[in-house]
Simulated assay, not measured.
Amino acid sequence: MSESRRLEGQVRVVGSGLLGASIGLGLRAQGVDVIVDDVSPAARTLAIDYGAGRAPAEGDDPAIIVVCVPPDVTAQIVERELHDYPNALVTDVASVKGAPLRELLGRGVDVTRYIGSHPMAGRERGGPISARADLFVGRPWVIAGHDGITYRRAAALEDLILDLGATPLEMSPDDHDAGVAVVSHAPQVIASLMAARLRDAPDASLGLAGQGVRDVTRIAASDPALWVQILGANASTVGGVLREFRADLDRVIEALGDVSHPGAMRVIAETIGDGNQGVARLPGKHGQSKTFAQVVVRVDDRPGEMGRLFTEMGEIGVNMEDLRIEHSPGAQFGLAEMSVVPEHEERLVDDLIRRGWTVTGR
C-alpha cells in the first residue's frame, strides 16, 4: 500500500469512459486493486489495456463502487450495483445529482449505501484513450449527501477523492445542480451557439480568429449525445439561467440598435463591467479568488523555445499560475500569455527583457 494512501479494499468502476478510466488510472497509481466493468466488452478491454484496472473475477468484494455511466441510466446501474454487492458503498459521477436520487427513491431503493458525487474535471475528448491519472488533481469533487446515509458510511468516498488528489466539497443535490447550471451547463449551450455562428463564416473571417473566440468556443467540441442527457436531466434549472442570459442579451441588442439613444452606451459599458466582476470571482489557483497580472511574451516558432521560456522563468524564480498560447496561422511566432501574481510582474518583465525576450503586453 502507498504510504499516503487512505483507501482500503477493492474499487469497482462501472463505465470505462474518460472519467471511469481516469479514476482507475489514478487509483492504480496508488496501488489500489481496481476492477473495471462496462456494458461494452471492447470498451472495457481498451480501458484495461491502458492500465485502468483488471477485469471482474469471481469473489470480487469491492469496498466502494463508482458508477460512471450516462445520466439516463445512472439510477438503473446504481440500483443493480447495490443489489449485486451488498457490502459496498456505491457512488456515481453523473453531472446531475438530484435526478438519480429522486429516481432511486421513487423505485423504493434503499439508499443507505448510496451517495452521489461529481468531480469537476474533464476534457473535450472522451474515452479511455484520453484518460489521465492526474485528471482530478486539485479539482473540486462534490459529495452530494442526503438524509438516508451517515457521514461514517460515506467516509470511503472521501478517501477515494483525496487519494485521487481532488478536493472534497459537500453540497446538497439541489445546490449542486443549481451550481453546475451556472458554471457548466449553461456555458456549454452558450459556447455551442457561438460556435455555430462559425459554420457559415467566410474563410477570411476565420483567418482572423484569435484567442478570444477560441476561449469562448473551446467546450463547443463536446459530445452532443451526452449533453442531450445532461441538459435534459437539469432542464428547468439550466432554462432559468438561460432566460436570465436572454434578458441581458436583449438589453444589449436593443442598445446596439441605436447607440446614440440616451443610456445605450451605459448599458454596453455596464454589461462589460458586470462581466469583469464575474470573472474576478472565479476561484484562482488553490481555490482562492485572486487576480493575476498578465505578461505576454513573443515566442519564436522554433523547437525548444517554450521550454527555454519555462526554464528561464524558473531561474528568475517566478511561478506561472496559468498559461495561454496564441499562434495565428502563417505567423512564425506565437504569443504566450502568462498569469503571475502582481507583485512579481515588474521583476519578471525586467528579467525577461534582459534575457532577450520580447514582452508584447502586460
Rank of each mutant, 00 (worst) to 15 (best):
V318F: 04
Q10R: 05
Q211A: 15
V299D: 06
I230N: 04
G179T: 13
V296N: 11
A144R: 09
N319P: 00
H286S: 12
H327L: 14
R6C: 02
Q294C: 06
P86N: 08
P303D: 11
V142S: 08
M313S: 12
V341A: 12
T311E: 07
F245R: 07
G26T: 02
G126R: 14
D350M: 10
A52C: 07
Q211S: 15
L27A: 02
V11M: 01
A131L: 11
I64G: 02
R218V: 11
L198A: 11
R113V: 10
T237Q: 10
T45C: 04
N87G: 15
V32F: 04
A255W: 09
L135H: 13
L348V: 12
A201Y: 04
S192D: 01
G361I: 12
T112R: 15
R6I: 01
R5A: 10
Q229R: 12
Y114F: 15
V341R: 14
S236K: 13
L249T: 13
R113H: 15
G138Q: 14
E326D: 15
A133P: 08
G207Y: 10
E158P: 07
I23V: 05
Q10Y: 00
Q188E: 01
A255V: 11
R281N: 05
R362P: 08
D33V: 00
A42K: 12
N319G: 09
E326I: 07
E244M: 14
D301V: 09
A178Y: 02
R132G: 07
D92M: 04
G207M: 13
G145L: 12
L7E: 03
D92Q: 05
F292I: 06
G126C: 13
I149P: 04
E315L: 11
F245E: 04
V183F: 06
F245L: 06
R132N: 10
P342E: 12
P119G: 10
E8R: 14
E315S: 10
L282V: 14
R123N: 12
L231S: 07
E315W: 06
E170Y: 13
S95M: 01
G330V: 09
S4D: 12
V39I: 11
D134P: 06
P187L: 04
M120I: 15
I268Q: 03
E170P: 00
L101S: 05
R281F: 00
R266L: 13
L7Y: 03
E345G: 09
E270Y: 03
A154D: 07
A181M: 05
R153C: 10
E8N: 10
D300H: 06
D350I: 09
L105M: 05
S184A: 06
T271M: 05
E244K: 15
F310I: 14
